[in-house]
């Protein structure tokens, strides 16, 4: 039987055909969602709790209460011995696992729920706070990290000067500087931005230095035989040569910055999306919690896709490589 190589889903390092590719991409989201739906809507799959619909003769049962299935069964057994009115209930999941449709609703309602106190913020305000913190944190880190990384990757002198200390410093966990940042920078955005800078900057220098070092040495040699000297080697060969890889690094680093956001926002006065999440968890609005968490994911993914798109336009001189 002849089978086209593109029809083979498991060919090593071969691109899938466009249609299969789309299908697999959709599947990558569909699989976890299906799993979540199954757990939420098929009662006998998990549902470790019972939601009481009629308390019967059990003193402490209330309508709408969630009890463990074992407890419910034990009470029922007890009552069936004493001929009392049996409690009734449906199998349910714990509150911390809301069903998908609840979370979908929460995407809308979380924006429209008024804050409980006047000083508190709406969800869109919290999100905007988070985005600002990320933006400034990543910008400040990059403003210093990218040039230092390129220098360290190009000149052995700077590599030896910066890298040993940075190598040491990057093992210090950024959140550990929380208290210090608050003491120095106050309680508002500044210490949070500082945590993101500390979390990103040191990795950034090392990653970019490594990327810069990977530039094909023969390009530098060719440039030298064409008369390029120190400055133009850096500005006309090294920088344009590593730019696409550097751009890709920045996309990955931006993802790291997002993970630091959650820690950063707990510092000083809690704020932003993290504040919203903890607040909603306190009120047991887990559908809002899930909606907010998924929102972070969606923002991250959309930004990354946008950056990937611009990257392809900017670096059209590259051989098409899928990443």
């Amino acid at each position: 039987m002849l089978s086209l190589p593109t029809n083979n889903l498991f060919a090593v390092r071969k691109e899938l055909a466009p249609r299969s590719r789309l299908m697999v991409t959709i599947m990558s989201f569909l699989l976890p969602i299906t799993l979540w739906c199954l757990v939420s809507y098929v009662p006998f799959l998990w549902h470790p709790k019972v939601e009481i619909t009629a308390p019967g003769d059990v003193g402490y049962f209330r309508e709408g209460m969630l009890v463990d299935r074992e407890v419910f069964d034990a009470e029922k057994e007890k009552l069936s011995l004493t001929q009392g009115i049996l409690p009734e209930g449906n199998r349910a999941n714990p509150v911390y696992l809301p069903a998908p449709h609840k979370v979908v609703e929460a995407f809308y309602t979380s924006f429209t729920t008024e804050p409980r106190r006047r000083s508190e913020k709406w969800l869109h305000e919290s999100l905007w706070d988070s985005i600002q913190v990320i933006f400034w944190g990543f910008l400040i880190s990059s403003l210093f990290g990218v040039p230092l990384g390129i220098l360290a990757g190009t000149y052995d002198f700077f590599s030896r000067l910066f890298e040993p200390f940075i190598e040491f410093f990057r093992y210090l966990p950024a959140p550990a500087f929380g208290a210090l940042a608050v003491a120095i920078l106050g309680i508002h955005h500044a210490p949070k931005i500082a945590i993101i800078v500390i979390g990103t900057f040191f990795q950034q220098v090392l990653v970019i230095a490594n990327t810069t070092r990977k530039l094909d040495k023969s390009l530098l040699e060719a440039a030298q035989t064409l008369g390029a000297k120190k400055r133009s080697l850096l500005f006309r060969v090294v920088i344009p040569g590593v730019l696409p890889d550097l751009y890709r690094d920045m996309r990955i680093l931006l993802g790291w910055a997002w993970t630091y956001l959650i820690v950063a926002e707990l510092i000083g006065t809690s704020s932003g999306i993290t504040w919203f999440i903890t607040q909603q968890a306190r009120y047991k609005n887990f559908d809002n919690v899930f909606a907010a968490i998924i929102m972070i994911g969606i923002i991250g993914l959309v930004v990354d896709l946008l950056l990937a798109y611009f990257g392809r336009r900017l670096f059209s001189w590259q051989k098409s490589s899928n990443s």
Binding site: D216, A223, W317
Partner: peptide, 10 residues
Amino acid sequence: FQGYTLFPWL
């Protein structure tokens, strides 16, 4: 050079 050393971005 033996390898290709054109600047790919130009």
